[in-house]
Write a protein that binds this DNA or RNA. Structure first.
Lengths: 187, 187
DNA sequence: CGAACAGTAGAACGAGTGTTCTCCTTGGTC
DNA sequence: GACCAAGGAGAACACTCGTTCTACTGTTCG
């Protein structure tokens, strides 16, 4: 009857795929491990997804949506536009300190894939574009002279903090990035 | 006679491994492809390296040394300490625009490996620590109040620019990072 | 009831993986 | 000349990969 009813099995598959990819990367996430972890049969996976590539892309798109929702919601929990811009890095800090933090899934999977035209890379690019657009909105609300330039600079701070936090294990990168953002905003 | 004579075959193997890993990642670099590309036999590879892991680590350590040499040499081609700090990003820009640029090999391979204790991750951490130490030296020469803090902030700008350049394909990230560095240095 | 469907369990297949092996050639060194 | 280490070409092994298949179990609905 209802064609848009949420399919439970499909959701489980996507959930588990998303988690395994984030934890260990695409190559290390075998269909066998997926079957065992999700508790579904191989046939069920191939019923909903043409092949592993399609499954991976769908899982990453799901993570894109969910991460952006979580991030923007958390950042928006402050009053003034200036607070929101600084809050970007406070929320990042909380993410770094959370259990199971493994950096940004999209940076990681981009590094795994050599071909820039690979669907995985395109999803990553779209994700970062969405993040840039969101930051740009905040900059506009803040009343920045050049919101686009400011947003691009803040994005560099965000990506830099994430990368340093992952590779060096230095979670204080969020604080250092926030310190730079403060100077940039003239606060 | 001379025990420290440079071994040509070993060098070729390391060279090709380094290039293939940078181009396509560790998982995509099979021993078979390595044999065909390097024009050496499997036996030769296993004569010099215990297994693939050891080869990968050795190739990454080699890249660490060579990249740092190249980078510091290029950056040091300026007169004043202030110029050198800004030159960090000019050199980065040149790297981004160079043919075959695929981001930072150490960020990429860190994303490929889930386990933080993996030798690959340790090599990456050491590489970024060396880079941080170098930037810290420049900051000290510059006469910064807190060279360590400044260096950590500049490192975030560097890693952020690299990540944005790779994932978004936006090479102007180097310019934007340099712009922020200028503000940070009060120039 | 019975057809249709979503699902599990698991075998099977071909291709690719890292690794080891044998056989052959080459270029020195006692 | 005898020896031996270095290297090449490629077969072979055990394993894992993604993918497909068959056989069986419920559930739903006309």
């Amino acid at each position: 009857m209802n064609e848009s009813i949420s399919n439970e099995t499909r959701d489980i598959i996507l959930d588990v795929t998303e988690k395994l990819i984030y934890k260990s990367g695409i190559a290390a996430t075998s269909m066998d491990l997926l079957v065992k972890t999700a508790g579904v049969s191989r046939k069920s996976i191939y019923r909903y997804f043409a092949d592993k590539d399609a499954l991976v892309v769908a899982a990453l798109q799901r993570r894109d949506i969910r991460w952006m929702h979580w991030f923007t919601n958390a950042v928006d929990q402050t009053e003034t536009p200036a607070d929101r811009l600084l809050n970007l890095f406070t929320v990042l800090k909380g993410w770094f300190d959370s259990e199971g933090f493994r950096g940004c899934a999209f940076i990681n999977t981009s590094g795994e894939t050599g071909d820039p035209q690979d669907p995985v890379r395109l999803v990553a690019k779209e994700h970062k574009q969405k993040l840039l657009d969101y930051v740009c909105e905040l900059c506009t609300e803040y009343g920045a002279e050049d919101p686009q330039l400011l947003a691009r600079q803040l994005l560099i701070l965000i990506e830099g903090a994430i990368t340093v936090a992952l590779v060096m294990g230095d979670h204080s990168a969020a604080d250092n990035a926030q310190c730079m953002a403060r100077k940039l905003l003239g606060l």
